[in-house]
Design a protein around this nucleic acid. Structure first.
Lengths: 153, 153
DNA sequence: TATTGTTATACTCTATAACTATA
DNA sequence: TATAGTTATAGAGTATAACAATA
């Protein structure tokens, strides 16, 4: 249990806190020019990242939340025509949630704003550090999720 | 706006989500053998990291939340004798929040559990990557917080 | 009266449980 | 009857606003 580890964890915590603040989300929606709550944004961006329509359960699993939560927000996004239900090609009786054209635009804007923050914060970084961060974060995310899954989450 | 950046951001999101899940917190308190809610744990660990008594406002700022929130949780932690109020040495009229001995123990346990998760997830990593992760996360946390502060948060 | 903290309140996010529909 | 999803409800977590206290 070394010092590096505590430093990693505590640095993590402060980034997480910064991203989770109400004001951060306010700033995001303002910059993106949309009026959405946090779960709405998460779902839209998740669908954009996935690059294909996904079932409710898959979205819930991806976002690591329970499905009723997704159901509710998808219903509201659907009303606002940001997503729509399409037939699941693999399972004719099921539906998938797809971004509409407008939904994809909105999702792109939100994703871009967040990326711009990181870009701004990393402005002074050497290219190699940025690439390293990306590589390590990606690995961390895989390994940490796998580790939790293994613990029986 | 390169691909590395999107990858960094999305990896980040999934780690954040994993850490914010209700079940993760449940697992944490169980492993630490304590019964505390999330804000309680955050405050205790924050005080432990700070390694000195801090004022309510400073805790709120550190955790990036509003102070009434801190007030309430500190009151409950105080009742449970996990923290106590001590005179501010710099400002005789003010108080600081200090960990009690028991509070410090509990905080250590919680911090250790989280560190162990990271340790477990990073088990297969070469030492150099672990050190790099620590360095880059630390830098990211500084730069991102500074960047937000600059934006006028 | 400026600063810091507190009380009161309300809103947002997410979970659990019970139910429904569909095959 | 097993699976995926939904409705209903409740509980955390956090913010805002109004107030109090202290210097």
């Amino acid at each position: 249990m070394d010092e590096d580890l505590n430093r990693t964890v505590s640095a993590f915590r402060s980034v997480v806190d910064a991203l989770n603040r109400a004001k951060t989300h306010e700033r995001l929606t303002e910059a993106a020019g949309v009026r959405l709550d946090r779960p709405d944004v998460k779902i839209l961006v998740h669908l954009l990242d996935a690059a294909e329509p996904r079932r409710i359960g898959a979205i819930a699993e991806g976002l690591q939340v329970e499905s009723p939560h997704v159901t509710r927000h998808v219903a509201s996004l659907e009303q606002r025509k940001l997503v729509e239900r399409v037939r699941d090609p693999d399972d004719g009786r099921a539906w998938r949630i797809a971004l509409t054209e407008e939904g994809a635009e909105v999702a792109s804007k939100c994703r871009r704003v967040t990326a711009e923050w990181f870009d701004g914060a990393l402005a002074g970084w050497p290219a190699q550090d940025r690439a390293e961060l990306s590589r390590l974060m990606d690995k961390l995310s895989d390994d940490l999720c796998a580790y939790f899954k293994n613990l029986g989450n």
